[in-house]
Design a binder for these strands. Sequence first.
RNA 1: GCCGCGUUCGUCUAGGGGUCCAGGACGCCGGCCUCUCACGCCGGUAACACGGGUUCAAAUCCCGUACGCGGUACCA
Length: 484
Amino acid sequence: MRVRFAPSPTGYLHVGGLRTALYNWLLARQSGGTFILRIEDTDRTRFVADAEEDIVDSLEWAGLDVDEGPETGSYRQSERTALYDAALARLLEEGNAYIAFDTPEEIEQMRSRLATDTNPNPRYDWSTRSHMKNSLTLGTDEVALRRERGDPFVVRLRVEPGAEVLFTDIVRGDVRFRTDDVDDQVLMKSDGLPTYHLANVVDDHDMRISHVIRGEEWLSSVPKHVLLYQALGWETPRMAHLPLILSPTGGKLSKRNADKQGIPVFVREYREAGYEPSALLNYLALLGWHPESEQEVFSLEGLVDTFSLDRVGPSGVQFDMDKLAWFNGQHIRMRSPEEIAKSQMEALKKAYGDVDEERAVQAARLMHERMAIASDLVGFEYLFKAPSDWDEAGVRKRWKDDSARLVQTYRDALMDVQEWTAEQLEETLRRVTGQHDVGAGRLIHPVRLAVSGVSHGPGLFDLLVYLGRDAVCERLERAVNALG
RNA sequence: GCCGCGUUCGUCUAGGGGUCCAGGACGCCGGCCUCUCACGCCGGUAACACGGGUUCAAAUCCCGUACGCGGUACCA
């Protein structure tokens, strides 16, 4: 099995693109096949300089390793023009393509001239090409003259009406189009570069791609591709068109649309936000695919073992940040505190100056169950510095009239604790509350508030152990003074 | 407009003629655990788009309608 992920460097890698890459990669890995990265950079007007780098980095971050790609050979379409030119020459020679000199303005004029209510958008096709300036209408002398003169031209696929193109999509089953509805697609633009349709067919053939797995937006152009394969006498690869990822309000998950929903569209944004790549992948895998069992949480390896194209559904799917967050929580709990801490060292240092890695690991251990995302670790300020103030609502609820006295008593008692362990700290606390004839909670809550500034968090005694005697006593002291 | 693809809880989905007064997951709502918050566990809420057929029997097959999405570029 040879599959490819073929993004165009017109922007950063999109989450939808990552899912397409994932499905391709999964199939390659489980079949012992080859995963190819091909850069479709035939549109010079929309080229984004750092897009390819982002695509490569994002795939690497996700753990989808590339077997063949720009790093290993000529896998950028801009480097493969000789191949397209050869295909073009053959199509032209055999009458399956023709040259057209119409300027964009002239085509526009044709469209507005021919537009009617029932056909508001006339195509350049079998029914209109006889009114246009092309090698089918112009006569050989005129064509030769224009070419000599250097008139700009494009090459178009010659699609004749009256036939049917039928193909079997792995996800959707049999799909058929009439050639009457297929336009004479431009194969080579006037800048000499091929369009996607030509380059894609030539490359898939040349790279011996066995399965084309891509988004549903390509389904309508399949007939053009099939016609090209036929004209070139090549075998058509198997195809699977994946359901599109939609925004929660419906419609394509475009940058604009998604931003409004608070959904990042670029993979790099998930990386920057601190998501677990395995969680993103897990979520994306389930977006359109369902395993035979009811298992939902998968490692990447688990997906390799379980994934199959015939359990991919055909209908569009809405992106759900809440569910992604849940997957992230599942995956973060599968990782060790050591790994989590390590991944956050840079951010920690940025926020708090020099942070000891072992210290960060302890913090991660403490907060493991409470993190939705690894970057949350940085947000637990009180683990790395004393609170500067105390949550107002928390104070109102937990800081009673006797709190200062109790906390002060506990603080004094802590000075005498032999071993700074959770057991001893708890024992000490219960002794204090016992002496004052109040419940333990009466002291636990104020102490937590005093040392952390907030009224929620890890088990109090684990927290005190983590903070250490000096910090705890100092924080208790400050709180008593401030809160009275 | 035309062409194509789709339509089961709010969302992701299971299901492919009887085992489905439709199962799981997220979310939401209760509860348990508990020093808080999380985690975890238990329970609840909620769906076969509509109309015709076919059949003893339809969420499942067929047709139509509606709706959604994609395409309709010298963009991919």
